[in-house]
C-alpha cells in the first residue's frame, strides 16, 4: 500500500512510541518476560540474551535513583538502615516516578508519602517512630531546598552598633520546631557520629544560609516564639512586648534576655541590616 510522507512518519512514530512505552514499563515495573517477548524488541548478542541486555538498564534505573534518594536523605537512610530505606524508596518511586528534568526534585513527595503510608495510619493509638521518620524527611528536603534556593546574598550583616530598628532576618532563615531533636540527630549523622535513634523531645532549630553556606543552630522555646513573632512583624520591640504579654515575662527580664540573645545572634549572623 502506498503511504505518503506524513502517514509514514505517523506509522514510524507509533512504532517508536510502542517501543518506548514497552521499555519504560520494563524499567519501572520489571516483569518476567519470555525470550520471545523480549526479542520482539531487543536483539540478543553473542554474549548476552535480549533479557540480559535489558536487565542492565533495569538494574541501573533503580540503583541510580536509590543512590540519589540516599544522597538527599542521608539522615533518614541512616535511621531506617540502608536496606529498609531502599524498600521504602522502591515503593515511593513506584508510586511517584520522577516527572522532573532534575533529580533535585526526586524526593519532593517523600515526607508526604511516608505520612500517607505509615503502618499505623488508621490506628487510634499511633507509634512514635513514624513521626520521627516523617519529620526527618521534611527536614532533609528543606535543607536541600535551602541549599540551592535563589536568594540575594549581597547583604550587610548586622553589627553590635546597629540599632534594633535596623534588624531584619536573613533572606533564607527558617525557624523550625519538631517533636524530636531532628537537627541534632541529622548533624550527628553527617558528622559520622553514628547516633542512636532519639526519644521524643520537642526541639527548636534555626536553618539559615549565609554566603552560600548553610547553618543549623539550636534555640530554646522562648527564643523560638520571639523569633517567630519577629519574623512576622520585623520589630524587636513588638517581639519583646509579645513575650511579655503572652508568657508573663517581666519586661526588665525580657530586656536582659534580649541583650544576651542579641549579641549571640549577631555573632551567629542571624540578621541583616534592614536598608
Amino acid at each position: 500500500m502506498y503511504l505518503d510522507q506524513s502517514s509514514k512518519l505517523k506509522t514510524a512514530s507509533a512504532q517508536l512510541n510502542e517501543i518506548q512505552s514497552w521499555m519504560q514499563t520494563q524499567l519501572l515495573h520489571p516483569s518476567e518476560l519470555t525470550k520471545e517477548e523480549t526479542e520482539t524488541y531487543i536483539k540478543p548478542s553473542s554474549k548476552l540474551t535480549a533479557r540480559q541486555h535489558l536487565a542492565i538498564y533495569q538494574r541501573s534505573y533503580i540503583a541510580r535513583l536509590r543512590a540519589c534518594m540516599q544522597a538527599q536523605y542521608t539522615g533518614l537512610s541512616y535511621a531506617l538502615g540502608p536496606q529498609i530505606f531502599d524498600q521504602f524508596t522502591d515503593f515511593y518511586l513506584n508510586n511517584h516516578p520522577s516527572k522532573s528534568y532534575t533529580l533535585g526534585d526526586l524526593g519532593d513527595q517523600y515526607a508526604h508519602f511516608l505520612a500517607e503510608t505509615r503502618p499505623d495510619k488508621d490506628e487510634t493509638v499511633k507509634e512514635t517512630w513514624p513521626d520521627f521518620m516523617i519529620e526527618l524527611a521534611e527536614f532533609e528536603y528543606l535543607i536541600n531546598d535551602a541549599f540551592d534556593q535563589k536568594s540575594n546574598e549581597d547583604i550587610e550583616l548586622v553589627k553590635t552598633e546597629n540599632t534594633d530598628q535596623e534588624f531584619k532576618l536573613l533572606p533564607i532563615f527558617h525557624i523550625l520546631t519538631y517533636q524530636f531533636p531532628i537537627s541534632v540527630f541529622y548533624k550527628a549523622v553527617i558528622n559520622d557520629h553514628q547516633p542512636e535513634l532519639p526519644q521524643m523531645q520537642t526541639s527548636y532549630t534555626i536553618l539559615l544560609r549565609k554566603n552560600y553556606q548553610l547553618g543549623l543552630f539550636e534555640i530554646n522555646e522562648g527564643q523560638y516564639h520571639f523569633l517567630k513573632h519577629f519574623e512576622s512583624n520585623n520589630s524587636v520591640r513588638a517581639a519583646k512586648s509579645y513575650m511579655v504579654n503572652h508568657f508573663g515575662i517581666p519586661a526588665k527580664k525580657m530586656d536582659l534576655f534580649w541583650k544576651e540573645w542579641r549579641q549571640a545572634w549577631i555573632e551567629q549572623g542571624f540578621f541583616q541590616v534592614n536598608l
Binding site: 509514514k8 512518519l9 506509522t11 514510524a12 512514530s13 512504532q15 517508536l16 512510541n17 517501543i19 518506548q20 512505552s21 521499555m23 519504560q24 524499567l27 519501572l28 538498564y57 541501573s60 534505573y61 541510580r64 535513583l65 540519589c68 516516578p97 520522577s98 516527572k99 522532573s100 528534568y101 533529580l103 526526586l106
Partner: peptide
Amino acid sequence: CWTGVLSINSHDLLPVPLNEGTLEH
C-alpha cells in the same frame, strides 16, 4: 537518547531504535 515517555523521566540516557522513522522524528 530518550529519557522517558508519558511525562516520566527515568534519568537514564535510553537508546533509540536506529531507523528512518526515528531519524525523521
